[in-house]
């Protein structure tokens, strides 16, 4: 596993003995794991393993029945403004009349307050920088509905980054993306690594990007989350992971608290 560039012993978020059920259907049971500030973490797992539930809990869109979740020392609801979120497949109206720049500027909104964060010179500078970073500067006036699937995904990443988040959460960001779009996305994420904590969720349980510092596997054991070790992959198409891929070693189980003990 690569050494975290800027990881400190401070945690970005922590799940402590969290359980969650939808009615009678238990999704997560006694889940504990954490990610440090500046780390690039991957949450992997098969469909239905509870990955999206972890994200909804992290974003404060769902409430855990048991256990405690902290994000930068606060409750998920209080920390929302620090999180940038890229949803998996949002159900968006394909005929919604909106331009790329308007979609990206939604990331600057904060509650029901007047959106001075968008209209100020500083706000416009941030949006311009994000559009450059995500290579969308030429598409700002295009209708969102006219974009390809890969371009739309990049717009949603830009929208999340427009919030200048401390934690960026991406749910299956490369699903249905072509190789070129995927490479562009990972190039963007590489630029963020170290400064922004990144949690990327994927159903690819075999390999993760070489940017990854920590791999967590949902659905492992009894509806829990397990931290796995990785090693450089030898026979994988690197363009699918934005560079060299890492193979996830499912037969390993790393001590989730070891990093904190070492830091002490």
């Amino acid at each position: 596993m690569t050494e975290p560039i800027n990881a400190t012993k401070e945690t970005a978020f922590r799940f402590d003995k969290v359980s969650f059920s939808y009615a009678e259907d238990e999704i997560l049971k006694n889940v504990s794991f954490h990610v440090h500030k500046g780390e690039f973490a991957a949450l992997i797992g098969k469909n239905g393993s509870g990955k999206t539930t972890v994200l909804r809990l992290l974003l404060g869109l769902a409430q855990a029945q048991k256990g405690k979740i902290t994000v930068f020392g606060k409750s998920p609801g209080e920390a929302r403004s620090s999180i940038g979120y890229v949803p998996q497949n949002p159900v968006l109206d394909p005929a919604f009349p909106i331009s790329v720049s308007r979609v990206v500027s939604m990331g600057r909104l904060k509650g029901m307050a007047k959106p001075s964060r968008i209209n100020s010179i500083e706000g416009r500078d941030v949006l311009d920088r994000i559009l450059e970073l995500t290579e969308l500067a030429d598409l700002t006036h295009r209708p969102y509905s006219a974009l390809s699937g890969g371009q739309k995904r990049r717009v949603l990443v830009a929208r999340a980054l427009a919030a200048e988040p401390l934690l960026l959460v991406l749910d299956e960001p490369t699903a249905n993306m072509d190789a070129e779009s995927e490479a562009r996305l990972y190039a963007t994420l590489k630029n963020l690594k170290g400064n922004t904590t990144v949690l990327i969720v994927t159903h690819d349980t075999g390999y993760v990007s070489s940017l990854t510092d920590a791999v967590f596997c949902a659905g492992a054991g009894d509806k829990g989350i397990v931290k796995h070790d990785v090693r450089p992959a030898k026979h994988t198409a690197s363009e699918l992971y934005g560079g060299e891929a890492l193979e996830v070693l499912h037969d390993t189980r790393l001590d989730n608290e070891k990093c904190c003990k070492e830091a002490d």
Partner: peptide
């Protein structure tokens, strides 16, 4: 006029709007 950005965001993507603390 007053809540146009919030209205637009909640109509476009309600889940994302919630993550920006929009009511």
């Amino acid at each position: 006029w007053r809540y146009y950005p919030q209205l637009e965001a909640s109509a476009f993507d309600e889940d994302f709007a919630k993550t920006r603390s929009i009511a």
